[in-house]
Amino acid sequence: MGQKDDIYQNFQLRPMKCELNFLSRSDGSAILSQGETVVTVSVNGPLDIKTTSQSIEKATLEILFSSKGGKPSVADRFKENVIRQTCETAILGCLYPRTGITITIQELEDYGGLLSCAINCACLALLNSGISLHHVVAAVSCIVDETGNIVLEPEYQQVQSAATKLYFVFDSRDKNLVTGFTEGAVGEDMYLEALEKCRAASDLVFNFYRDVVTKYSNVI
């Protein structure tokens, strides 16, 4: 373990800033900036939905992703799908059968790592909404640069020039991989190394969640 710790001790993520309850009318909301990437998320639910989309054993999750331009695209649908599957593992939907939970994500600024920022922000909004969760999730992104180094939470220029981008989402219970996907080609060894690095870095995100909750817990 000692050697492993040495490898991972000097990583850091881009600075994260967050405000909970950012929107006054929604049940839960959050705005999160990771570096220069900014996303806001609102959560509404559990709500009544139409009978055709109700499920008798769990809550139906609906994700709406709107990009900065506002024009819907296939890439946005793909992001919605990834975020829905991630959130479905986290939410204890069995406690709210025949209801719907709507998560609306608005991209404000994209300077790389938009998807991981959106997932982290959605998780914070869910914490704020008071919906029962199985665990919290933390998303970490990284790239492999030309020289074969792994860069966690890269800057904008690095993202633009990178051949391979990797995104990983971990749960808080056992740090298991919840979601993982890649853009570009990557070797198996490199993939596993990136996975372990991101897994270690997810601790920073979980600690950040705890700090955010600690700040408001004292006054409620």
């Binding site: 204890l92 914490l127 008071g130 919906i131 029962s132 969760l133 408001y216 409620i220």
Partner: peptide, 23 residues
């Protein structure tokens, strides 16, 4: 735990989490 907040106890054996909620 299923909600974010502060874990509380009332004697003898009642436990709950104080969390923020609107819905």
């Amino acid at each position: 735990v299923t909600k974010a907040g502060v874990l509380k106890k009332r004697n003898p054996c009642t436990y709950w989490v104080d969390s923020y909620q609107k819905r």
